[in-house]
Every structure is written in C-alpha cells, then in structure tokens.
C-alpha cells in the first residue's frame, strides 16, 4: 500500500506539471490579458505593470518562474483581486467548496447505494419502478436546471429554505445546494448499484450462500454488498469530477463564496494565476480520489493486489 502511495505521488508531479502547462498555454492563447481594459493604458504604464508581473518576459521564462514558485507552495498573486494572493483566495473559498462537495459525495454514495440495493432486492416492484423512474429523470436533468427549480419551489414558493448565501455554514443554507448537486449523482449511483447487485444476486456464490441456508439479511450484508459495491468504488473519481464541475455552477446559483466563483471570474478576466491555482487544486483532489478508490478496491476485493 505504501508502495502504491509513493508510486502515485511520483506520477502526480509530472501530471500536475502537464496540467499547469496546459492551463498556462490555453490562457495565453485566449485573446486579451489581465490588464486589457476598454480604455487603453498609456504604453509606459502598461510596460511597467507587465514588468512587475513578469509579463514582458518570454513565455518559457514566465512558465519557469511560475513553476518554481509553485514548487515552493506559492501560487502567485491574483491579477484580478489585487490585494490577495491566490493562496489566500483559495484558502478562503476552499472550506466552503469542500463542505459542499464532501456532503454531496457522502449523501450520493450512501443514498445511491442504498436505493440501488433495495431496488435490486425488490426488483419489478413498485419501489423498483419508482426509484428507476425518478433516477432516469435525475440523470436527464442536470444540477444547474434542478437548482433553480428547487430554489423556486422550496425557497420562494414554500418559503422553507434560504435560496442564497453561506451564512457561516448554516445547515439550512446548505440543503438546497447539496441536494441539487447530489440528486444527479444519486440517480447515476442507484442505477449502477441496482444492476451490479442484480448481477451479484444471480451469481453462483449467492446460490451457494442460499444453499447454506444463510438468512436473507446476512446474504445481502456479508455476501452481496462487498462484490456489488465495486463498480461504485470505481465510479468514485468520475463522480468527484462531476461534482467539481457541478459545484462551480451551483456556487454561482446559490451565491456561495467557494472556489468555483474564483474559477469562473478568473477565466473571464484572464486571471492566469487564479485559474491555474484552482485547476491545480482540482487536479490534485481528483488524483487523491483515484488513489483512494484504488486503495478501497484493494481492501474490498482480495483478488486485487495493491501495488
């Protein structure tokens, strides 16, 4: 296992450099720059600003400076939020995004798996049809469509829940964004879980467990779940990626000061360092999740040797 972690860290560094280079390149290809305004600055001043931010140097040189700073853990100054460094901005937004993302992922995994298992056990019953029907809608309706509908209904129409703001992490403020973010994932996970549970239920070793006279509940908890959950473990990283992109929009809709907002603002305003900082964070998190799901898989399935 330690071997696996070391190996992944070794791969993570070049991967991150490639991602940084990619974002760096893309941002420079896009027209305009952080200091392009409608009203042109006097050339001497623009010259001075560019010098201060090293923007006058050749691209390769800029990239080198940027990389060496990142190596020291410094993501550089923000071009747009001039009084803040990217580190400060990310630190202020990250706890919010993390709360949102982690709640959504835990809820999606738990509810999605649970609904899928029950639907599989009670297949071709009203319960199964309901879960599968609703989840089909859940898959078709993306969270950015769901969010305004939920806000409208629970926030404005019923007046039950706040529709905007963080409010110091108040649980009521979290409900709508987390629900909008999780529902599509619950839909996907419950369908995956249902089909893998049905497949497991039809396998020979479950027939053996029944022939051994094991009670239903024990068959599900001891024999079925650990096999049927494996596709969900593999889906963990893609789910996280989905939640990350979803959260960028959800944070906008619900006015949450997470890092999603900086990503959008940064991209629109050519805030090179901010966008790239957020990307580095997202990429690292994703790689962490892939590692985590590989470790989990190894723990759950003895046939997999974790190397």
């Amino acid at each position: 296992m330690i071997q696996l972690i070391i190996k992944r860290l070794a791969i993570a560094i070049p991967t991150l450099i490639i991602i940084i280079a990619f974002v760096f390149g893309l941002m420079r290809v896009a027209p305009g720059g952080p200091f392009t305004n409608e009203r042109a600055l006097p050339p001497e001043i623009e010259q001075k600003i560019n010098e201060a931010y090293d923007l006058d140097k050749p691209l390769i040189h800029q990239f080198g400076i940027y990389l060496s700073k990142i190596a020291k853990g410094d993501l550089g100054p923000s071009y747009k939020y001039k009084d803040f460094t990217v580190n400060e901005l990310i630190l202020s937004g990250f706890p919010i995004s993390l709360t949102l993302g982690v709640s959504a992922i835990i809820i999606s995994l738990f509810l999605g798996s649970l609904l899928g298992i029950i639907a599989a056990i009670k297949r071709n019953t009203i319960f199964d049809y309901t879960v599968m029907g609703v989840s089909l809608i859940g898959i078709c309706v993306p969270s950015f469509v769901l969010a305004p509908i939920l806000s409208l209904f629970f926030g404005l129409y019923l007046g039950l829940l706040p529709i905007s703001g963080w409010n110091g992490g108040n649980i009521y403020n979290l409900i709508l964004p987390v629900v909008s973010l999780s529902l599509p994932q619950i839909a996907i996970i419950s369908r995956m879980m249902r089909s893998s549970t049905i497949e497991t239920l039809n396998s020979n070793f479950i027939r053996t467990a029944r022939a051994k006279g094991m009670p239903k509940r024990r068959i599900i908890t001891k024999h079925v779940i650990r096999s049927s959950i494996l596709p969900i473990i593999d889906y963990l990283a893609p789910a996280t990626a989905g939640l990350m992109t979803g959260s960028i929009i959800i944070e906008q809709i619900f006015g949450l000061p997470g890092i999603g907002r900086y990503f959008v603002v940064g991209a629109l305003q050519r805030d090179y360092t901010l966008v790239s900082g957020v990307m580095i964070l997202y990429a690292s998190l994703l790689m962490l999740l892939i590692l985590l799901s590989d470790i989990l898989r190894g723990v759950l399935d003895p046939r997999v040797k974790i190397k």
Binding site: R207, T208, K212, P215, K216, R226, P302
Partner: peptide, 27 residues
C-alpha cells in the same frame, strides 16, 4: 423460504458443479 433456509445447510448439504465460481470471492 425461511423454514427451508433452516433445513438447507443444516440437514441438507449442497455441492455445486462449478467450484471456481461457487465460493464468495471476498470472504
């Protein structure tokens, strides 16, 4: 089903054709 499962494995043992897939892989 419940009464039967009290007999299966206790009074009646069953051995299946395919030993490669008849045991729970993660147990």
């Amino acid at each position: 089903e419940k009464e039967l499962s009290n007999i299966r494995g206790k009074k009646i043992g069953f051995i299946f054709q395919d030993p490669m897939t008849s045991l729970t892989p993660h147990m």
